[in-house]
Design a protein around this nucleic acid. Structure first.
Lengths: 351, 351
DNA sequence: GGCGCGTGGTAGAGCGCTCTCCGTCGCCGC
DNA sequence: GCGGCGACGGAGAGCGCTCTACCACGCGCC
């Protein structure tokens, strides 16, 4: 910007009215004579005026942004690791298409309201403090938090500071914040039901990290239905939601139960890993082993065979999360709510 | 926030000094008596003071954010499509691990400077205007732009408005903005060299969208080296940087050249698709057909066989992009610069 | 014809911070 | 012992906006 940006004052002078009148026109409110209205509008056009956000924020005490924070539970204070680590954390997080969907859903809600997400990553005590500080300083009106770990201390920090925040998934320890979630247990049931219906009799599962509530729920639902149909014991191997971990877990599972004919995995990434291992061991999917994933992420349709999976409506959930935050910020809603979504079985080629 | 947030004034009163002194301490500058310094610091502690960003921005004319915008070239003004479309755009964009790496690199530079990226998507004229407006209003100090299309009009818009911006990749039409880029041609050469060295004699390529300069360069480099070694003609099939498009392109290629023994793809995603098609047609990789991808994205190591690929140091490039923007904002650098990175061949199992 | 009232506009007080002066004080040199 | 200088702290003027008064009309009414 070469010359000084035009201010409300300049426009007012140009239009021959007062600052307040211009402000009214800009904010599209109340009784302003139509003739004056477009007199002003023309002046705005001519001067190329753009309202200064900082000034507006200062008086309205509202920004046009919310923080979208992905947080882990790290407590390493090692300053050496931190930078490269943090950097890698962001990269790693977005390696799962899941987060892209969250962003998509959030933006879907925010954009029509002319709001924008500020991306933040918090996996060390310092970065967590940064998030809190940022909000307290009025950098954003509230936070949308996606935790990658059940022991994430951030939600409690936020709640303690009285900052508006909404979580994706129920927090590990109860915290007075709204959140959206999926009925994971039902998802597990759906997977089990489908495998059983297909005629699988020796099923196993590569579960997500069991410390994560969602993983446990999925597993519980899976076991639940299986038990109900005469399969009290289910081999379980724990993975870490990544392709690699899925491979490791599958390898272990296969070593102990070479005859399995049905598999449920905690997410699609691990399903992909499992399928690879299965193939490497000469098993055909779905003929020899049927595989059901979880999430219905983009890779479910791009990998081969295309994954039968339990769909999680992530975009919709994320949009709802943004909506809840909005309601909190606008003051309409004061006490924590939770919205739980229903999973859906998507049948493709792997089972 | 229940009660009114404490202001500089409150802290000053608490500490028994003037507002200015507190400000100095907060901003950690100049000659303030150490005794007074921690008198103030204690008062800050006691009151729980957090500086108001809006007020600070108003006077310094600097925010603590930059816009990170992913932009397409859409010109559809159809209001119906727009919302869901835009939403999907975001999701789609992040389905490629590439963008996650960009985010990681950007955050890596920004965070140590206590700055944050505001995520924006622009693929319609309106959303592009929103980006420009946002910056003109002082919502962010500058923009980091990643275009998905060579005809993206955003860079020109930004440059025209005199807004600080740095691009990832050279723009389709010349625009007076700094950018970072890769020596794509050299990347293509690297791939060709490796395939040749392996003994491949009938090589083909699944190129990225040829409208994209990077794709053309990669192809040119690839052809270049091949021609130099007695292979003047190379079968080319054009893809769209997605797994699916890679499959389609590979299928076409295979139909016309069933005897090919070497393949270079425009990115790793397409390589993955190609490998699947190759396998479906009974070709072993790398024994029957050697495949070289591009990017070295996270999927290169998670798929099977692990991909031999041309590495693009995306994180580093993104960090540099952020650094250049910083320099422009701070005023140190006024004329457009470009920083070009060198690709690197990463040999794994697919070739 | 004066009163009240609704309409459409202006004036001006901040919002919380930074930063440029400017005043004060202690200390050194001649 | 006095002038001057450096180190430090305070006063106060904005930054550009919103929003609450408040005022000037013209109208219908009794």
């Amino acid at each position: 910007m070469s010359r000084q940006a035009p201010t409300l004052e300049d426009v007012a002078r140009e239009a021959g009215v007062s600052r307040a009148t211009v402000s009214r026109v800009v904010n599209g409110v109340r009784n302003v004579d139509p003739a004056i209205q477009d007199l002003v509008r023309r002046a705005i056009e001519r001067t190329g005026y753009a309202p200064n956000q900082a000034a507006r924020q200062l008086v309205t005490r509202r920004t046009t942004t919310v923080a979208l924070v992905v947080s882990g539970a790290g407590d390493a204070t090692d300053p050496d690791v931190s930078d490269a680590e943090q950097n890698a954390f962001a990269t790693r997080v977005f390696a799962d298409p899941f987060f892209g969907r969250v962003v998509g859903g959030v933006v879907g809600h925010l954009r029509p309201r002319s709001m924008h997400p500020v991306l933040m990553f918090a996996e060390t005590p310092e970065t967590r403090q940064e998030v809190v500080a940022y909000l307290r300083q009025g950098g954003a009106d509230g936070a949308l938090v996606v935790s990658t770990h059940p022991d994430d201390p951030l939600p409690a920090l936020l709640a303690g500071a009285g900052l508006p925040a909404v979580l994706f998934a129920r927090p590990g320890r109860p915290v007075p914040l709204s959140h959206v979630d999926l009925d994971h247990r039902e998802g597990g049931r759906l997977a089990a039901g489908h495998l059983l219906e297909r005629g699988c009799r020796r099923v196993a599962t590569v579960a997500g990290p069991l410390a994560v509530a969602a993983s446990q729920e999925r597993l519980a639902g899976f076991r639940d239905t299986l038990a109900r149909h005469g399969h009290p014991c289910v081999p379980v191997s724990e993975g870490g939601f990544t392709v690699d971990s899925g491979m490791v877990a599958m390898t272990a599972l296969l070593a102990e139960h070479p005859d399995l004919d049905g598999l449920f995995t905690g997410n699609d990434l691990m399903a992909q890993g499992a399928v690879q291992v299965l193939r490497d061991h000469g098993r055909r999917v779905p003929q020899d082993v049927a595989v059901v994933g979880f999430d219905d992420s983009s890779i479910a349709v791009t990998c081969r065979p295309r994954l039968t999976t339990v769909r999680q409506p992530v975009e919709e959930m994320a949009a709802t999360m943004a909506r809840l935050l909005d309601e909190h910020i606008l003051g309409g809603r004061t006490d924590p709510t939770s919205v739980v979504f229903a999973p859906e079985l998507v049948i493709r080629d792997s089972a």
